[in-house]
Design a protein around this nucleic acid. Structure first.
Lengths: 194, 194
DNA sequence: CTTATTTCTTAAACTACTTCATATTTATTG
DNA sequence: CAATAAATATGAAGTAGTTTAAGAAATAAG
């Protein structure tokens, strides 16, 4: 199993010696996931945190009116989970589905707890992950509160150009808080302009 | 200075002996803040993380069109900061203002880094804070994506009844992503019903 | 306790975005 | 490579929430 990608990522935030690196990596299992396959489903507890080695995922919920709403996308070097389900180990509310044939590295909840216990550095790593995630979501919430549908799309294009090509339009629309029809119009207007 | 409240809070998440507790608490400074006074302002780096001992705060931004949008409220036993400014130590984009005469305990950025370095438990504590915050914002984003203005207000009433009385309506409206006029209508409709 | 300031209310006109319905294009499968 | 399904596009009608404006109520300040 190739864990260099994960370790390269981790070493960007904490420095690990060879023994620590091996210890960390050995807690992960490689899993191949086919397009349209689910790795998390509502009512089942999300037992793993997943690091995307290759591929793309979408985390979403289905509202009472039947429409879906996307909380998160993940491609190479992103983490994905139903975070509320994972950290509290209670039933998930999200679906997480592969948008492409993918490879992920998964760590089980109890193994992560162990890692964090045995080595301060591992604790630091997961602290940094959570802080970056929280800072990201703060920026997202503020941007959503302060901008129109069109501005939200423009901003996404600017910040995540590589996601745009790999994510279906209806999913992106639901991430940005608009209908797929409205996003279609925004895109159409844009291409006519340029 | 009375730090029992902070320590009681911290001990809810990590167990500290007397020495550790003293070490942790000694990094905080008590600050009194008058109503309408700012503890964070745009363009100045947010140098402290603040624990609310008594009082209430509001973190918000002013959009290009001049309207304000609230990211967060904080009352007793909540933390408040411009989190992006604090963790990356770059200029803030938020205003944080006292909604009442308040008392807070502030820790400076560099002291927090030191605490996290010297004792695994302190690292764990801040990791848990970040994780809880991230899980909270995930729930918020999902709820906002999936519910109408009225449902968002009802949900806030249900989850944070104690905030509602202490927060001006225009601020609550801007937190929930609607105008104060519209929230006024929602409230009026509700009181007529019951 | 009077005046000034801030916050909340109400109503009417407006608009950004949704809904619905159907056509078109792109992707998937036997 | 047909045939079927899934995703996107487009127009017309509808609506949730905004905007503007003006008055009423509450709070703060002299």
């Amino acid at each position: 199993m190739n864990k260099y990608q994960l370790l390269a990522y981790v070493k960007h935030f904490v420095s690990l010696d060879d023994i620590e690196a091996e210890q960390f990596a050995s807690c992960f299992e490689e899993v191949k996931v086919k397009k349209r396959q689910f790795i998390v489903q509502p009512n089942f507890t999300n037992k793993h945190r997943s690091f995307v080695v290759k591929g793309a995922f979408r985390a979403y919920t289905i509202a009472d009116d039947g429409q879906d709403h996307t909380l998160q996308f993940a491609i190479e070097n992103w983490w994905v989970s139903d975070f509320n389900s994972y950290i509290y180990q209670h039933p998930a509310t999200l679906f997480i589905v592969a948008l492409e044939d993918s490879t992920i590295l998964q760590i089980e909840y109890s193994k992560e707890q162990e890692l964090k216990k045995i080595n301060h550095k591992f604790e630091t790593f997961f602290r940094i992950m959570a802080e970056k995630g929280l800072a990201f979501e703060h920026r997202r919430i503020l941007f959503n509160l302060t901008h129109s549908a069109e501005a939200r799309y423009e901003n996404f294009l600017l910040n995540f150009p590589n996601f745009v090509q790999r994510v279906p339009q209806y999913a992106l629309a639901s991430y940005l808080g608009m209908t797929t029809e409205f996003l279609s119009r925004i895109r159409n207007k844009r291409t006519k302009k340029s």
